[in-house]
Design a protein around this nucleic acid. Structure first.
Lengths: 245, 245
DNA sequence: GTGGGGTTTCCACTCAACGGAAGTCGGCGT
DNA sequence: ACGCCGACTTCCGTTGAGTGGAAACCCCAC
């Protein structure tokens, strides 16, 4: 059954990327002998590898497969130069995120040396309703995704997190109209972010470019043109023709 | 059964990253109804996603999982600045590869604007016995891997591909001794490459940094110091203390 | 309307996955 | 040296979950 495989693979995480067979068994709740067989199959295929230390870890085969996901390899490669420029100019955290189901996933990030330690790491999730990038992606998401998110529980990270659906709709409408969105202290009280949409060849929004900066001492408004310009640059490289932000 | 899932996922490729259900069924050789059920399960978990166009593609969940593979995220992030410098100085293709089983996988690459069109793309395989990076990885691989590769069939890409095990052993020994390896016209008659080892915190070789350049008009020897220095730089960033190349 | 694709649902059979149990290996403490 | 313990591996009889043929469904193009 497939769910067993998923349970097994889910045993691996950012914190625990290497596990023994028994650990996998315990973490996934599967009987040891079953785990043993499944792990063997996964290893044969290359989804898992056993290191010289005897521990199992995710194999590159899986990474290669994952790299086929739209909005990783090509998007990243094209976006990198622009992100670097933006990072160089602003000296703040820059990140690129895409939509996956009802979550935003950060696929690339350049962190500033002395900047706010971003909560998020590459390959991690961002809330759609509270992060700058998430809001921009949500603003341009399919109607059903929007409805699902607006209906579902909207976690309140801080006192400033917008959790009222009606208010959120306004924010999304503004984001679409303005071509950028600013999210202040919605995830942490010490940080704020600004995001702009990245469009693909068909002019649909496929990613969001954002900067995450400290609340203290930074005026996000001043960064709006830079972020929008960078996002437009990426869009153009990807073949978008629309001038809309 | 797990193999069915693998067959199904293998239907996706660099060339065909988006497929209809029927296409998946045909490509994987699985009955349509079985495919339907498996795809549904995979989609529920997030390994696959169905785009607004109705086509299925690999989901970000899989990409995130794959990113847990050692030698992708962290290695890439640390290596990037050095690769960019090297790329800037040499103006040639620069790539970073790691070992997976008995193959080398390119995990990052910077291609030169007007350079040889590298056969390889990011997230693609390199032969261990014929590419510069592959040779360096093989030179430092576990004994059993080396034996397997030397025993197995060594594909002859060009007339200059080394396929004699004895000769290959010499090349590997030289690579270990010198701290770099040069592979001339072993994959294509128009290109050659130079690779140096990247060491992790335990001083073991975990990756290979290489440049791929045209045969005509470029003296690889002149690039040896640059590539070695960059590789050492990455190693140092990763916590390696060994001065051996 | 009709044909032809892709897609979804249904269900009885069967065989492959399951997992308890027993056996192996290796390291550590006494 | 010995015994213990944990991790790993192998075996095998049972059974219920995966299988896949078939039929219905949907939607578009001609």
């Amino acid at each position: 059954m497939a769910t067993r495989l998923f349970r097994l693979l889910d045993a691996f995480s950012m914190e625990r990327p290497e596990l023994t067979l028994s650990e996998i068994s315990r973490a996934s709740g599967l009987p040891l002998s079953t785990t043993h067989r499944l792990v063997a199959e996964l290893t044969r295929w290359g989804a898992l590898r056993r290191g010289s230390n005897g521990l199992y870890h995710i194999g590159l085969r899986l990474w290669q497969l994952g790299s086929l996901s739209p909005g990783t390899l090509r998007l990243r490669e094209q976006a990198m130069p622009f992100m670097e420029d933006l990072h160089g100019v602003t000296q703040h955290n820059v990140q690129l995120a895409v939509l996956d189901g009802t979550e935003a996933v950060s696929i690339e990030r350049l962190s500033a040396r002395g900047a706010v330690n971003m909560v998020t790491r590459t390959a991690s999730m961002l809330p759609l309703h509270a992060s700058g990038a998430g809001l921009m992606l949500l603003a341009h998401a399919d109607a059903d995704v929007q409805e699902k998110v607006l209906a579902g529980p909207l976690r309140r990270y801080t006192e400033r997190t917008v959790t009222a659906p009606a208010r959120l709709r306004e924010v999304l409408a503004d984001a679409r109209r303005d071509g950028y969105v600013i999210s202040v202290q919605q995830i942490e009280m010490i940080s704020q972010s600004l995001a702009a949409p990245v469009r693909g060849a068909d002019n649909s929004v496929i990613a969001a470019l954002s900067v995450v900066v400290p609340v203290e001492g930074v005026d996000l408004r001043a960064l709006v043109p830079a972020v929008r310009a960078s996002a437009l640059g990426i869009s153009r490289t990807l073949g978008a023709t629309s001038r809309r932000g």
